[in-house]
C-alpha cells in the first residue's frame, strides 16, 4: 500500500510538473524522424509523427489524472446524492430514483459510455461525461446501501430519538460514517475511469489529437506492434502501472479502514 501510494503520488507529481520534466513539447512533430527507437536524444524513442515519446508519456499522466478526477467528481457527487436521497427518504423517492438507476444499470457501462459519446461527439470532456454518467449508477447503489445500513445503526436511532432533524442526521452521522466506504470506491473508480477512457480511445471515441493520452497513444500505435513495439510498451506500461497503483491503494485503504462492502 505504501508503494501504491508512492506511485500515485509520483504520477500526481509528474502530472503537475510535466512542463518542467518533459524534455520536449508533447506536440512538437518531426516528420523526418518518425517511429525511431529509443536513443540518447529521445530516451523512449519517437512516435508516428516524430514526437518525443517520453514527453508524451509524461503529459499523458496529466490527461489521465484529469479524466480520473473529472469522472470521480461527476460520479461521486451525482451518484452519492442520488444514493443518499434514495436510501434516506425511502418510499417513492427511493422507488423513482432506483428505477432510473435500474434503467442505466441495464446497459453495460461501456455501451452506455459509447452511446453518450455518440450523442455528444468524441472528445476529452465528453469522454469524462460519458464515463462519469456510466459510473454514476454504481455509486448511487453503493451510497444507498451504505445509508440503508447506517440508518439502522443504534447511534443514528439514538440521535433520531434525541430529536435530531433529518439533515442534521445526514450531515453529522451518515455522511462521516460513509466516508471510508466511499473513499475506497472513489480510489477504485479513478482506476476504472482511466481504463474506460482508454477503452473509448481504442474505439476511436476518446481524447482529441494532438493531446497526449495513454489510451489513445496505445490505440494510435497499434499498427506498430511488431515494427516499433516501444510505441505501445511505454504508454501501455504507464497506463497499467497507474491503474494498478490506484487499485492497490483502494485495496489497501479497504484493509486499513476495515471496510466491508457487501
Amino acid at each position: 500500500m505504501a508503494w501504491a501510494g508512492g506511485i500515485v503520488g509520483l504520477v500526481i507529481v509528474v502530472a503537475l510538473l510535466a512542463p518542467w520534466l518533459a524534455p520536449y513539447s508533447p506536440i512538437a512533430q518531426n516528420l523526418r524522424d518518425v517511429a525511431q527507437p529509443p536513443s540518447v536524444r529521445h530516451p523512449l524513442g519517437t512516435d508516428q509523427l516524430g514526437r518525443d515519446l517520453l514527453s508524451r508519456v509524461i503529459y499523458g499522466a496529466r490527461t489521465s489524472l484529469v479524466i480520473g478526477a473529472a469522472v470521480l467528481a461527476i460520479a461521486f457527487t451525482v451518484g452519492t446524492a442520488i444514493g443518499f436521497a434514495a436510501g434516506w427518504f425511502g418510499r417513492w423517492v427511493d422507488e423513482t430514483l432506483m428505477r432510473a438507476v435500474d434503467v442505466l444499470m441495464a446497459f453495460p457501462e461501456i455501451l452506455l459510455a459509447i452511446a453518450v459519446v455518440a450523442a455528444l461527439g468524441p472528445g476529452l470532456a465528453n469522454t469524462m461525461v460519458a464515463v462519469g454518467v456510466s459510473s454514476t449508477p454504481r455509486f448511487a447503489r453503493l451510497a444507498r446501501a451504505v445509508v440503508l445500513s447506517l440508518r439502522e445503526e443504534t447511534y443514528v436511532e439514538a440521535a433520531r430519538a434525541a430529536g435530531a432533524g433529518e439533515w442534521r442526521l445526514l450531515r453529522h452521522h451518515v455522511l462521516p460514517n460513509s466516508v471510508s466506504v466511499l473513499l475506497v470506491q472513489a480510489t477504485l473508480l479513478v482506476a476504472i475511469a482511466i481504463q474506460a477512457a482508454a477503452g473509448l480511445g481504442f474505439l476511436g471515441l476518446g481524447a482529441q489529437p494532438p493531446r497526449a493520452e495513454w489510451g489513445v497513444m496505445l490505440v494510435d500505435s497499434r499498427t506498430y506492434i511488431s515494427t516499433a513495439p516501444w510505441l505501445l510498451t511505454a504508454p501501455g506500461l504507464a497506463l497499467m502501472v497507474t491503474v494498478m497503483a490506484f487499485n492497490f491503494l483502494g485495496d489497501g485503504l479497504q484493509d486499513v479502514l476495515a471496510v466491508r462492502i457487501s
Partner: peptide
C-alpha cells in the same frame, strides 16, 4: 487520416 490532420495542424 487522423494522423494527417494532426500533422497538418502541427505545420
Amino acid at each position: 487520416d487522423k494522423e494527417t490532420a494532426v500533422a497538418v495542424q502541427g505545420q
